[in-house]
Simulated assay, not measured.
Amino acid sequence: MGTRRTPLPGVGTQYDFTTEDGRRLSVVVHHDGRRFLGFYRPDDPDACEATVRLTPEDAAALAQLIDPAPVGGIRTDGLDLVTEHIPLTSRSPYGGRLLGDTRARTRTGASIVAVLRRTSAHPAPGPDFRLAIGDTLVVVGTREGVDALAALISGE
Results as ranks from 00 to 15, higher is better:
residue 49 E to H: 12
residue 87 P to E: 02
residue 125 P to I: 08
residue 66 I to V: 15
residue 148 A to V: 08
residue 127 P to I: 13
residue 40 Y to A: 06
residue 7 P to Y: 01
residue 107 R to G: 02
residue 29 V to Q: 06
residue 87 P to V: 05
residue 64 Q to L: 13
residue 120 S to R: 15
residue 72 G to Y: 13
residue 110 A to W: 04
residue 142 T to Q: 06
residue 28 V to L: 10
residue 151 A to G: 10
residue 129 F to E: 10
residue 155 G to F: 01
residue 45 P to Y: 07
residue 78 G to Y: 01
residue 43 D to K: 10
residue 14 Q to V: 08
residue 29 V to D: 06
residue 140 V to G: 02
residue 137 L to R: 00
residue 42 P to T: 13
residue 141 G to C: 04
residue 123 P to E: 05
residue 122 H to G: 04
residue 154 S to R: 14
residue 102 T to Y: 02
residue 40 Y to H: 14
residue 20 E to A: 12
residue 153 I to A: 01
residue 44 D to V: 12
residue 19 T to W: 11
residue 79 L to I: 02
residue 16 D to W: 04
residue 1 M to D: 09
residue 40 Y to R: 03
residue 56 P to N: 06
residue 11 V to T: 14
residue 48 C to H: 01
residue 42 P to V: 13
residue 86 I to C: 03
residue 155 G to P: 04
residue 2 G to I: 02
residue 17 F to C: 01
residue 35 R to G: 11
residue 24 R to M: 06
residue 25 L to Q: 11
residue 10 G to S: 01
residue 33 G to E: 07
residue 83 T to V: 15
residue 117 R to E: 11
residue 147 D to N: 10
residue 131 L to N: 01
residue 11 V to A: 05
residue 143 R to Q: 10
residue 58 D to W: 05
residue 32 D to M: 04
residue 93 P to E: 01
residue 147 D to I: 06
residue 121 A to N: 10
residue 113 V to W: 05
residue 11 V to L: 13
residue 36 F to P: 03
residue 150 A to D: 02
residue 102 T to C: 07
residue 53 R to E: 15
residue 97 R to T: 11
residue 137 L to M: 09
residue 138 V to E: 03
residue 18 T to V: 12
residue 112 I to P: 01
residue 144 E to D: 12
residue 41 R to N: 10
residue 72 G to N: 12
residue 148 A to M: 05
residue 107 R to M: 10
residue 17 F to G: 03
residue 45 P to K: 13
residue 36 F to M: 11
residue 94 Y to S: 02
residue 3 T to L: 09
residue 79 L to E: 15
residue 15 Y to T: 09
residue 120 S to A: 14
residue 48 C to E: 15
residue 80 D to P: 00
residue 156 E to F: 00
residue 156 E to M: 00
residue 1 M to C: 06
residue 144 E to R: 12
residue 30 H to S: 15
residue 49 E to M: 14
residue 29 V to H: 08
residue 6 T to Q: 15
residue 84 E to M: 15
residue 125 P to N: 07
residue 17 F to R: 13
residue 21 D to R: 15
residue 17 F to K: 12
residue 21 D to V: 07
residue 139 V to T: 02
residue 75 R to S: 11
residue 80 D to Q: 14
residue 140 V to W: 03
residue 69 A to C: 06
residue 43 D to Y: 08
residue 147 D to L: 12
residue 102 T to H: 00
residue 54 L to C: 12
residue 38 G to A: 09
residue 95 G to F: 01
residue 9 P to N: 05
residue 76 T to Y: 05
residue 71 V to S: 03
residue 73 G to K: 14
residue 39 F to K: 03
residue 136 T to R: 08
residue 124 A to Q: 15
residue 146 V to Y: 02
residue 8 L to Q: 14
residue 51 T to C: 10
residue 37 L to G: 07
residue 22 G to E: 04
residue 96 G to P: 00
residue 90 S to N: 11
residue 87 P to H: 01
residue 148 A to D: 14
residue 65 L to T: 13
residue 62 L to M: 10
residue 124 A to D: 15
residue 13 T to R: 06
residue 95 G to T: 09
residue 81 L to Q: 09
residue 156 E to I: 00
residue 68 P to I: 03
residue 69 A to V: 13
residue 69 A to W: 09
residue 136 T to G: 07
residue 25 L to D: 04
residue 65 L to G: 15
residue 134 G to E: 05
residue 22 G to D: 06
residue 15 Y to Q: 12
residue 59 A to L: 06
residue 142 T to G: 08
residue 123 P to H: 08
